[in-house]
Write a protein that binds this DNA or RNA. Structure first.
Lengths: 183, 183
DNA sequence: CGGGGAGGAAACCGATCGGTCTACAGTCAG
DNA sequence: CTGACTGTAGACCGATCGGTTTCCTCCCCG
């Protein structure tokens, strides 16, 4: 057995919940994963826990796509994130930032998946803050919060497909970096 | 009869779909509106049409809250939108921009409610563009797209409650206006 | 007074929801 | 071989889904 039922469940959940929303039923999910409901409920306490676990599983891959390779200036490293995002938003399968989309769908701030989303989003802000600090920005925390906001805004625009202007996130982040004196 | 069944349905739908998501059932919705399912399905072809119609109904009120009063400089008029948004995001009942949230939940870009959301969002961008043009910005369309993106980003941040910094939308919009030479 | 339309209450439809449970196949250790 | 363990298939539970239909009440107009 190359993949465990747990792996298959998390992978199928990550894809289906992102593509069709968390309203996808447990039956359809288990069928897609090739796992019986019985096994699913032995592995996870509830569908809600599975949502949270699948988001936690998906997040590292998401971050890996966005994170810049080693080296380069802080400015370039930050802009790499927005360029990578631009590549994602151009795809027809793009449904927004998975973290924000899940939080938006779940509404309930106490949902376990919401804590997962918050944690991984904070990691992105922390990355921006560390780079901004390295670059000697006057207020790295505020700049990091602004950049995260631009990231989420670019994702939202892409979802609504009211985005005739590609690279909007990159140009806006550039403007903020300029304003913050990050060369 | 002070309110028609149609009005009660649209109002209840606007509130419930925003507060709990479009997954709310037709039964619960009709009960909240004090309207029978029979009447609902005589007034609307389907739940999807009701979602679209309720969003269309809600949008003018939403815009009225954000739109600045007559007068003032373009810069002040633009910043008024972000200050008004800041007031909304501070409320515990805030669940994000209704237009973006609906589009995010529905996934399907061909859903009638998605067209409604796009149209109203475009109206906001058009407002920004008109003000930027009045102010003599070099590229008013790009600036308007950036401001809309910041607006949606601020909404997304507020949803996730990873928002220790109030007024983030206002300060970021200010930075973009400064960069675009809109005094 | 009598008739017709509007609209509420609720039964009903097949399908699906999240979740539980039984039955059985395969695989390992002893 | 036996017994424990893991896993699938799928029936089953009550509830709810979107949507349709029947029935009845009310009110307005003639």
């Amino acid at each position: 057995m190359t993949t465990t039922p747990r792996d298959r469940l998390l992978d199928a959940a990550g894809e289906l919940f992102y593509r069709e929303g968390v309203g996808v039923g447990v039956d359809a999910l288990c069928k897609a994963a090739g796992v019986s409901k019985r096994s699913m409920y032995l592995l996870f306490d509830s569908k809600d826990e599975l949502i949270a676990a699948s988001l936690d599983r998906r997040a590292p891959d998401y971050e890996a796509v966005l994170r810049p390779p080693d080296g380069g200036t802080p400015r370039e490293r930050i802009l790499h994130v927005f360029r990578a995002q631009d590549g994602l938003t151009g795809q027809p399968t793009y449904r927004g930032c998975p973290l924000v989309a899940t939080a938006t769908e779940l509404k309930d701030a106490t949902h376990p998946a919401n804590a997962v989303a918050r944690r991984h989003k904070q990691a992105m802000t922390d990355f921006f803050a560390a780079e901004a600090r390295t670059a000697g920005a006057a207020d790295p925390d505020t700049l990091a919060a602004q950049l995260t906001m631009v990231f989420d805004g670019a994702a939202a625009r892409a979802v609504m497909r009211a985005e005739p202007l590609a690279g909007l996130g990159v140009t806006t982040a550039t403007a903020l970096l300029d304003a913050a004196g990050v060369v």
